[in-house]
Design a protein around this nucleic acid. Structure first.
Lengths: 359, 359
DNA sequence: TTGTACGCGTTATCAA
DNA sequence: TTGATAACGCGTACAA
């Protein structure tokens, strides 16, 4: 099929070894006749010789490939992280092998099995978390770690394990967003969360609670609702429906809603608009994630922006460092502080409130 | 490092070959003692043996990996195509090696070189097109074709080459959008295009022109403008500025604007809104692509929707077919008819106008 | 059941 | 000095 060193050797009339020395510019090759070198190089060019990395991988036990696993490709969440990973990784001569698990942990496990068979040098994984009621097995992830294959989680992590990760500081971001609302005078701040059992969702809820507590406001469980599950009668109860319910609360009606993700904020926006109330005058609204759609709504939404590129870059750096320095036992657990992008839906004047990076 | 067949063979006290036969369930293995088989299988499980696909790739000369090259990861254009590719490809046991060229053809060439060294079985490429003034070299793509490596282009193609591709029927989609506007009574329809020299942009312009001509309307060059280039004085002249200029045209002011991509439509939307005119009453607006943002604007935009998943799926199918049936010389050139999604910005009542698939 | 050779590049060793 | 030989890494295929 493709041109091998053997082909060149045969054509030129030297051994495979000699060709190898010349093409790789080995010190020994300085002792090879200039004429031989010339002929070999020329033949290589003429035949369009191309290193066979498969052969190299076999001997070196290194593929220069890293596996990247995402749950899905909806929205632009994956994109920015992927771009971050791509930049760092290619700089170091690595390739990305991308897998999408479709929010199915069995698929995820199969993908990881494939990546292991292909002997990737390491993996960056955004793993599947369980939705209400599901049972999820994470053994395939723990096994990767156990077998000493460099592994870095992104955006969420497995508590009680010593696996490296790079995540958004969800607690901090949430805390800041709610504190921002408090400073604007809001006291009745609702939170819409989702039935997804992962660290980010939990930490955002905790950040919300802590901010209220620190401000001396009692947690009102009526103000915390979980979207996207079915009621007994089978009807959907998502961000839209929940918001409608919040708006019906009359005197106790919240004056601000903080949603755990952008998608829910869009639903809430629609609900508020339909009710004839206005944002931010009647209801302030803050999302989390910074989906592109949010800035194009009639009233651009204020959001906590996940530092996606940084997550990707940092994750890749940690991974490559692990790969190239196999001794290190140190486990990196990094939470990057997100930015609060103040637009119009919270009622503050436009601007950006920035915080530094903690780890 | 990892467990090999040799390890198992040594532990069990049989030859490497025997282990291979048993693990791969070869017919010959039926003549192996049940006891030996048991012991081998158990040892494999105990040691957590995992096939080394690198070794297999070396002998088979097949990596079961396909290279996918995109220009960038902005927006959700890549995502849907990628999901389509991913589904088809994994079904056939292939992995994706993803590269992002950052709109830089030299980077693209380097990526393709890497993919070739890693001996991918085929490639799906969304290649870099030239912007005004740039010089782009496509030799690296032609070489892939020349060397017999299965290659499929997506969303754009190189005219005058016999390389397979799957694209949007840009001409048809454009034609349909403009015809739709004509049917709504518009006669002064403007088109904003971009200075990108690729088949899709050119074909959309042609579709626009043909629709007008077929309706007996003369092409008014004043109504065709190219966004995103600098004027002599250095100021930017993008979709926003162009739209403002259109709106200043008084009597000759266009009543509808059709933009070559969604991004420009958003700019145009902003310009119209600022001018105090309303959509669709004063100005109808139609985009191309179906970016998620468009449906969340105050007035949801009517768009020609690129069939992204289909492009990905079809592209992957063609590629895998080429890989697994190496004889076929047939070149597939497929244009998938897009859908016109009628929302509010064109002034028609909501609904979807669908067309079939042509090829 | 086992030995042997192959695919391809690398490298330590050995001969001219 | 200049170059060739052989073995390695791992799974597979075929003859023995």
């Amino acid at each position: 099929m493709s041109v091998t060193m053997q082909d060149i050797a045969k054509k030129v009339g030297v051994s495979r070894t000699t060709v190898g020395y010349i093409l790789n510019n080995k010190p020994i090759s300085s002792q090879i006749t200039d004429e031989t070198r010339e002929r070999v190089l020329e033949m290589a060019k003429r035949l369009n010789y191309r290193t066979n990395q498969i052969a190299i991988s076999l001997t070196r036990n290194k593929t220069k490939t890293i596996g990247v696993v995402f749950t899905n490709a909806r929205g632009t969440f994956m994109n920015e992280i992927l771009e971050g990973i791509d930049h760092v990784v290619h700089q170091h001569g690595y390739n990305i092998s991308l897998c999408i698990s479709d929010d199915d942990w069995r698929r995820e496990a199969r993908h990881i099995q494939m990546l292991r068979e292909k002997r990737v040098d390491g993996m960056i994984v955004f793993f599947v978390s369980c939705r209400r009621g599901e049972k999820i097995n994470h053994d395939h992830l723990l096994e990767v770690k156990k077998d000493g294959i460099p592994l870095v989680f992104i955006d969420r992590y497995l508590p009680d394990t010593d696996i490296d990760y790079v995540v958004t500081d969800d607690f901090g971001g949430s805390y800041e967003a709610v504190t921002h609302l408090l400073k604007l005078g809001h006291k009745k701040i609702a939170h819409i969360t989702i039935p997804l059992d992962c660290t980010s969702v939990r930490n955002r809820l905790e950040g919300y609670k802590k901010a209220l507590i620190d401000a001396g406001i009692e947690i009102n469980e009526e103000y915390i609702k979980t979207a996207d599950f079915s009621k007994n009668d089978g009807s959907k109860y998502g961000g839209y429906e929940i918001t409608k319910d919040f708006l019906k609360m009359e005197k106790e009606r919240p004056t601000a809603i903080f949603t755990v993700i952008d998608g829910i904020a869009i639903d809430a926006f629609r609900a508020v608009k339909e009710t004839g109330l206005s944002i931010p005058e009647d209801i302030a609204l803050v999302g989390f994630g910074n989906d592109e759609r949010l800035s194009h709504l009639e009233v651009p939404l204020t959001v906590v922006e996940q530092p996606k590129s940084e997550i990707g870059e940092k994750g890749a750096e940690i991974l490559i460092n692990k790969i190239e320095n196999p001794g290190t036992k140190e486990v990196k657990k990094i939470a990057i502080k997100p930015e609060l992008i103040v637009r119009q839906s919270c009622g503050a004047k436009n601007g950006m409130v920035t915080a530094g990076t903690i780890s």
